[in-house]
Every structure is written in structure tokens, then in C-alpha cells.
Amino acid sequence: MGVLDRLGEGGASVSDLAGPAGMSLTGMKKHIGILEEAGLVRTEKRGRTRWCELATEGFDEAAFWLEEFRRRRHEQLNRLEEVVERRKRERQT
């Protein structure tokens, strides 16, 4: 199971995550660091461990970008379709 899938079920410490993922503590720390930089994971120090949670707003933002791209591309291809229709009619006459 991926780290993000695991965190989707709830928060966990870095060492909770490392074991099941078959990674060293250092490796997992690095991995979490990358996810944190990407805005997908949020961490905080709790006693002697680092606690990790999904940063849901990061996912919302990513999904929003893609949705906007999709919408724009769709609009553009709708216009292409109109030009295609006109072109087809011109060819027939």
C-alpha cells in the first residue's frame, strides 16, 4: 500500500509508515519530505516522532487545475467541431 493510501485512512508517524512500506526510516523521511514540499502531506513534531497527515487542500488544488485544463481544452475542441462542420458543408456544396 502506498504512503498516500495509508495516510488516506488516517494520520501516522514516519516509523509507522516506514515498516509496512519496506523502507528505512531515513528513506521514508526523505519521501515524506518530497510529499510535503508538493503540498500533499502535512507533518508536525509530536514528542520524539514526526506525525504525518494528508494535506487535503493540496489534492483539491491539483484536481482543480486539471479540471480547468480539461474544461478549456474541451471548449477549444468544441470550436474545432464547429469549424469542422462548416468545412464539411462547404465541401458538400
Partner: peptide, 19 residues
């Protein structure tokens, strides 16, 4: 027909790009 809409600039400028 689709090809020409991409490769003929007169047709291309009728649909490409933002509103």
C-alpha cells in the same frame, strides 16, 4: 477535414486558443 483545421492557418485561427 480535421487535418486541414489544424494545418490551414485560416481555419486554425477560427478555433484555437482561449475564448
Amino acid at each position: 477535414v480535421i487535418w486541414d483545421c489544424f494545418m490551414d492557418p485560416e481555419l486554425l485561427k477560427q478555433w484555437l486558443g482561449p475564448d
